[in-house]
Simulated assay, not measured.
Amino acid sequence: MVEDILEIAVVLGTGTTTGALFAVALSTLPALFAMPPDRYIYSLKLLGRNWDPTMPIIVLSSTIIAIVLAFLVPVSQARLLYGIGAALMIAVSIISHFANVPINKQMRKVDPENMPEDWEDPRPLWRVYHTSRTVCSFLALGVIGWAAVLG
């Protein structure tokens, strides 16, 4: 019973993470790329307000649950898959924390009304990092879903 509840929770958490990252890649990023720099900075400040602490909580909770399931489920293949899924979710967290978030924090300091002349557009690099964490999240969802079916 506990395993079943944890399996549902980890699939929901990993699926929520993947869906949010996919939505950003599919819709938000193209819109931000189409904006002139001052509009981009203004919009980024509005868009980022509700991600913290919501997404870190979901990502880290899903990771912890996957780790617990890697030790709890009786099927050895499912244990391995939960471990791989947890590692992929750790990668999502590391990329977010050490790549995307620092760029976001730096951009939030910029005044859209007084754009610096030497401003360097971070959007292409941010997209590379975001794509990387989105791929990790999709892979995590796939292996965690597979583990849940086996478990």
Rank of each mutant, 00 (worst) to 15 (best):
T14L: 00
L47P: 00
A87R: 04
A70I: 04
V92K: 00
I5V: 15
L47M: 13
D111R: 05
P116T: 01
A20G: 12
M89S: 12
I103Y: 02
A9D: 04
D121E: 11
L21K: 06
L29A: 08
E113D: 10
V24D: 06
V59H: 05
E117D: 13
E117W: 02
I57R: 05
P74K: 11
F71N: 09
A86H: 03
D121L: 02
A20S: 13
T18L: 08
T54E: 04
S93D: 11
V24I: 15
F22T: 14
T63S: 12
L21S: 08
I58M: 10
L80K: 04
A23T: 13
L60P: 04
T63K: 00
L6W: 00
V73N: 01
P56V: 11
P102V: 10
A91V: 15
S43E: 12
L88M: 07
G48S: 13
D4V: 11
P56C: 09
G13Q: 06
Y82W: 09
F71W: 10
L12N: 06
A25L: 11
A99Y: 13
A66L: 03
M89D: 10
V75S: 06
L26W: 11
L125I: 12
W119N: 00
L32R: 05
I84S: 09
R123F: 01
T28C: 05
R108V: 07
L6R: 05
L80F: 14
L125A: 13
R39M: 12
L60W: 12
E3C: 09
L26F: 12
A25N: 12
W126R: 01
V73E: 04
I58K: 04
N50Y: 13
R49V: 14
P37W: 00
I84A: 01
I94M: 10
I103S: 05
